[in-house]
Every structure is written in C-alpha cells, then in structure tokens.
C-alpha cells in the first residue's frame, strides 16, 4: 500500500508522519504507522460502549455538585469578617511555600540572635569573674592602654580589688572595691583612664 493511499484513507497519517520523519523517514515506519492506526481503530470498534447508566450517573453527580455549591457559597456569605479573616489566614499558613519561608526566617533570626548574644560576651574571663560579694562598692573602670598586665594585677592586689565582670564594650571592667578604700587614691594611681560608679 502506497503512502499517498494511506494518507487518503487515514487523515491522521499526515500528523504522525511528520513526527516520524524527525526520527526516521523510512517507508517501513510509515507502513507500521498505517497498520497501527488500523489496529487501534478495530480495537476501538470492538469495545462495548459504556452503558447509558454511566451518563445518568454523571448527570446525577453534577446535580449533587450544583446543589452543594450554593450551600458552600451561602456559608461563605454569612461568615463574619473575623471568621473570613481567620479562614484567609488559615489558607495562607497552610501554603507549603509560606511555611518553608517562615522556617527560613526563623532560622535566620536564631542565627542572628546567637551571633549578637555571643558578640556581647567577653573574649576572656578573669578568675574572679562573677564573684560579687554584694556588700562592697562596684565601679566601672577602663585601664590605660599602655598599662602592662603585671601592673594591673599588682594594682588590684594592692587595693584588695577584684574584677567581677568584663571586658565589656571598649575594654570596660567592673571591679569590686572594699568600702573603706580611698577612692581618690585609686583614681590617681595612674593606671586608670576612667572610673565611675556602677549601678
């Protein structure tokens, strides 16, 4: 059977052939296509048609759907603004995209908070960190930049002072000083750049 004859007999052949030419333009394939169409046609003719009941079933389903639809619409209309807002929010938050977005935002907030909190912590702690007796005077101090570590230690020991917090911010330390100590003398020791009451 020639291709022209096939195309006349089966208009679909033209469409299928276009595709086939992209793959392989062989005549054999075109013949196969023709036989395939015939086989499908015969198979379709051989099937027993769905019963009339099916269409009735479909129509009944449609009637039910239509009866339910106005009820749903009426329910929506009678809802108050709060209920509608709640419904809207529920719809919004049930969206997977938004849920993942919120998860991401939360993760960012946690990471940010962690970094901020950690940045406030002193980079090191003294041995006396947190040992506030509660009955002595407490002062914020900043040591002069050129002061050596050893000088600071002997200064603290000499005046029976201890660092109870710090360094905070710009190298600020919180020290505890016995009540009876001469504050003016400590201030003028030449070691401190700043000294002020801590509250």
């Amino acid at each position: 059977m020639g291709n022209e004859h096939n195309k006349e007999k089966h208009p679909l052949m033209a469409t299928s052939s276009e595709g086939l030419k992209e793959d392989n333009g062989s005549e054999i394939q075109e013949q196969e296509t023709f036989y395939l169409q015939r086989a499908f046609e015969e198979m379709e003719k051989e099937i027993s048609l769905p019963s009339e009941e099916i269409f009735e079933r479909i129509c009944n389903r449609i009637v039910i759907e239509e009866q339910e639809r106005p009820v749903k619409e009426n329910v929506k209309k009678t809802q108050g603004p709060c209920t509608r807002l709640f419904e809207w929010l529920r719809g919004l938050f049930s969206s997977p995209g938004l849920a993942w977005g919120l998860c991401g935002a939360q993760a960012i907030v946690f990471v940010f908070a962690f970094l901020v909190l950690n940045s406030g912590k002193p980079s090191f702690e003294t041995m006396t960190y947190g040992q506030n007796s509660g009955h002595n005077q407490v002062f914020n101090v900043i040591f002069k930049k050129n002061v050596k570590f050893g000088d600071v230690v002997s200064f603290l020991q000499k005046h029976h002072m201890k660092i109870i917090n710090g360094p905070l911010g710009k190298d600020l330390f919180v020290i505890e000083i016995e009540k009876e100590k001469d504050l003016e003398r400590i201030k003028k020791s030449g070691i401190l750049e700043f000294m002020g009451q801590a509250y």
Binding site: S16, E22, L36, F40
Partner: peptide, 11 residues
C-alpha cells in the same frame, strides 16, 4: 502509541 498514532497528537 495511542496518542501519537491513533489520536494523531503532535509530539
């Protein structure tokens, strides 16, 4: 095969 050769749908 049904879609391509019987229904005649394009790729």
């Amino acid at each position: 095969l049904h879609l391509a050769f019987y229904e005649g749908f394009t790729y």
